[in-house]
Design a protein around this nucleic acid. Structure first.
Length: 439
DNA sequence: TCTGGGGTCCTAGGACCC
DNA sequence: TCTGGGGTCCTAGGACCC
């Protein structure tokens, strides 16, 4: 839950009774690259990049790769020349590895305070309000060295009074060798905020940057000092929140309890363009199996399903087509068979012949807890299907995904994602343990 | 030839109602 | 022929995040 934004009168009242919060943002440096390096010491000092699914874009870069001018999010084929010339090590992404290392990092952080918000796979906010102004920076250094020692992952840590300011602090920490920056106890942070470009502020994306530039706001200090009335009138409540947070007034709370998700998407770009209906159907069926399994594992059921398909937005010579459709299930479900059935029905509806499809996906939405969703109509048949789903899940958990599947999901999977540079490291696999040769 | 995937929240505008 | 105004709810799409 977010706190309301304080209006003028309340402001002085609130600040007089509010104790100073201290929020740390811990961010893993070049996280995916760091994970690959853990298991491959030879690439420690070398330029390394990790690619997105389908080996499409560059989504993680080591410092050495950054200084070669390789950009975040850049398509791989565009950077290939620099990569080859400089012998940059390239990896396809290995999300189960990164997820596993991430959990280890978060577990380590929890030892410092259980009030933690795991914000993303490589970031967490930690409440350090219990420490004094004087000691909090040292605590940051302590966290950093313990995480490095226990997990091998280097981090940057920013500490400040609000989440947005701790993001700013983190941004500064990234450029420092010590890797830790605290803005706690600094009377006037304007000179610091002045050096932070407006597009580097958390919550300010491309569109807002354009808007702020048009209105003469180029850095974080300028936004901070802009009147709240002006911001609310000319922008929106989110910008207003950001500005308040820059002023040191916390508007975005730490969310320490993980809430249930509201939607679940599984979508992929194809390794090869797909033109025929049968293959598209197989792909969609596979995504449905993944999505249903995922929500089953979280005890959720979906009321709605959306299917979308599209051709490449970058290659218009073949004609662009994109379409999606949503339908509701009669009764909320997480049953793979029902989900696949509904999906194919939609696909038949939106599929058009003669296009080279590049991507497709399924979205399960209007999710609710399976126990809340139990209704009067559940029958013996439902129980049987549920127990079938459970045994499929258990089998697949034990013997690997796709051990049990549906016929509609196909076997050839010509459309499957490209993963040319996969590191094949599996932390749950005995055979992936580094070996030590005995004499 | 080759351009990721998975989320959340906000808002404008349409549908509907009285 | 002339055809209100205001409220609520829902949804699609946009913007943002990593």
């Amino acid at each position: 839950m977010r706190k309301p934004i304080f209006l003028f009168g309340e402001l002085s009242l609130m600040s007089s009774i509010q104790y100073t919060k201290k929020i740390a943002l811990i961010d893993c440096n070049a996280f995916y690259v760091s994970c690959e390096r853990l298991f491959n010491p030879k690439i420690r000092k070398k330029p390394v990049v990790v690619l997105s699914n389908n080996d499409g874009c560059i989504i993680s870069r080591s410092n050495e790769a950054k200084s070669l001018g390789i950009k975040m999010g850049e398509p791989y084929f565009k950077a290939k020349e620099i990569i080859v010339k400089n012998k940059v090590q390239v990896f396809s992404s290995n999300y189960s590895l990164y997820g596993d290392i991430s959990r280890r990092v978060m577990r380590t952080l929890k030892r410092f305070n259980s009030d933690i918000e795991v914000y993303s796979i490589d970031e967490a906010f930690l409440d350090l309000s219990n420490f004094s102004d004087e000691e909090v920076e040292n605590v940051g250094h302590e966290i950093r060295s313990v995480v490095l020692q226990w997990t091998g992952i280097p981090t940057s840590i920013g500490i400040a009074k609000t989440k947005t300011l701790s993001k700013v602090a983190n941004h500064i920490a990234k450029k420092k060798k010590s890797g830790v920056t605290s803005l706690i106890g600094i009377e006037n942070i304007d000179p610091i905020l002045e050096k932070v470009e407006i597009n580097d502020v958390w919550g300010v994306g491309r569109q807002l940057t354009k808007f702020f530039h048009k209105n003469g706001i180029y850095n974080a200090r300028q936004l901070k000092n802009k009147s709240n009335t002006w911001i609310k009138k000319n922008s929106n409540v989110l910008s207003s929140r950001t500005a308040m947070e820059l002023k040191g007034i916390s508007c975005i709370d730490l969310e320490t309890t993980s809430s249930k998700r509201k939607s679940c998407v599984v979508s992929r770009s194809f390794g090869k363009r797909v033109e025929n209906f049968q293959e598209l159907k197989e792909a969609i069926a596979n995504y449905c199996l993944n999505a249903s399994e995922k929500i089953r594992s979280e005890s959720l059921v979906a009321k709605s399903i959306t299917i979308f398909i599209r051709t490449s937005p970058f290659q218009n010579q073949y004609g662009y087509y994109s379409n999606s459709k949503t339908i509701d299930f009669p009764i909320a479900t997480n049953n793979s068979i029902e989900v696949v059935k509904a999906a194919i029905l939609i696909l038949e509806n939106i599929f058009k012949n003669g296009y080279r499809y590049q991507k497709a996906g399924v979205l399960l939405s209007n999710l609710s807890d399976v126990n809340d969703a139990k209704n009067l109509f559940s029958s013996e048949r439902d129980e049987k299907i549920n127990s079938l789903m459970r045994s499929i899940d258990n089998t697949n958990y034990r013997y690997g995904r796709a051990t049990l599947s549906l016929a509609s999901a196909g076997v050839h999977k010509k459309w499957n994602t490209k993963k040319q540079y996969f590191s094949k490291i599996d932390t749950a696999d005995f055979y992936c343990l580094p070996s030590i040769k005995a004499h």
